[in-house]
Design a protein around this nucleic acid. Structure first.
Lengths: 187, 187
DNA sequence: GGCAGCATATGATTGAAATCATATTCCAGA
DNA sequence: TCTGGAATATGATTTCAATCATATGCTGCC
């Protein structure tokens, strides 16, 4: 099943496909066809700067959508390159645009987008905290430590080593519990 | 005038007010009334963690909206505290929800939100670059250096000193031009 | 015109996270 | 059951951005 809000669009709007490493989904300047929901694999969005510098705009991971803004644009403004093989669903631009005439879809879209913006703002606030220990603490308070410590570290823009050290310091300070190897929660 | 997409809502949905430092716009747990567009001043959104830790969720600045997700929620999930005096417009939750029945508003909302998500993702990618010089270069390529260097540094989550040094290094490496004091562009 | 405040700019020092290295535990799968 | 890979964990060293300090140019305003 597709994640919200795209599950509300007609099934005819979806095109599933498998992707192989190195595949190019679209290129900067190409006519937009729609957005993508990545089921598995990894996709990088890259833009080439005026002087040829390659700049990674976004790394899409399993279960997330990307190129949403292309729905409102004539041309893609970056390249989409498959890093790891997987599968995805393309969702037609026209179906999304038409979907906004359906208040249920529109509200679901709005809710989803607003929550995503909120989450991004919060992560950016947390990433702005300089001290690794404070950053890790804030990350835990924000509930960002759900999967592995390594994933958590990546979200915090810290190395996993620095994150492990900060976690240990927090445990030693009694601010965090470490009931078992690899699990941490607020004290 | 209100920024997109809220300019499309009936004027009856807006309530302007001035705000003083220390004012509390809403508290965590309070019934949601709507979102806010900040005209001038500064507002912090803060959440209190389970053990009483104060965590800044977001710093709203002039010309931006905040608490958009409250429209889809019964209760505010954070406190909104005025840091610097200014003025804002509150936009009724019910008017926004009703607005989604208008495809023009819905699409404008969708476009605005999608672009914001895109911008956030890009900034997060850039902030993830470790070397100050590379980060500053990426920031310039992304067009983030429009205002002052100090603002630019804040967006990059760097100190302005580190940013000035990186800029000078880039100028010396011939990758960036510094036509006049305080102005930098790609070489 | 002079002063206050801010952005720009750079030097010196410090500190903390990155990096490099290594060991252990856990789990999946041959 | 053995093996390989990944996550967890921590030590040693290095690097580079933060911090502290200071100077200058620019602008607004009294």
């Amino acid at each position: 099943m597709l994640p919200e809000p795209y599950d509300l669009l007609p099934t005819t709007a979806r095109q599933s496909q498998t992707i192989a490493a190195g595949d190019v989904l679209f290129r900067q300047g190409a006519q937009t066809r729609g957005l993508y929901v990545l089921k598995t694999g990894r996709v990088h969005l890259e833009r080439v700067g005026p002087n040829g510098e390659r700049l990674i705009i976004h790394r899409a991971t399993s279960g997330t959508s990307f190129a949403e803004a292309s729905v409102f644009s004539e041309r893609y403004h970056c390249d989409a390159i498959v890093m790891d093989a997987g599968a995805l669903v393309r969702i037609d631009k026209s179906a999304v645009l038409a979907g906004f005439a359906n208040p249920d879809f529109a509200r679901a879209y709005g809710r989803q987008a607003a929550q995503q913006v909120q989450a991004h703002r919060q992560i950016m606030e947390i990433v702005g905290i300089r001290r690794a220990e404070d950053r890790v603490m804030a990350g835990i308070v924000a509930g960002l430590l759900d999967g592995t410590v390594i994933d958590f570290a990546a979200r915090l823009q810290l190395t996993h080593e620095a994150t492990y050290r900060a976690l240990r310091a927090l445990v030693e300070a009694g601010r965090v519990n470490n009931p078992s190897r690899g699990t941490y929660r607020l004290a």
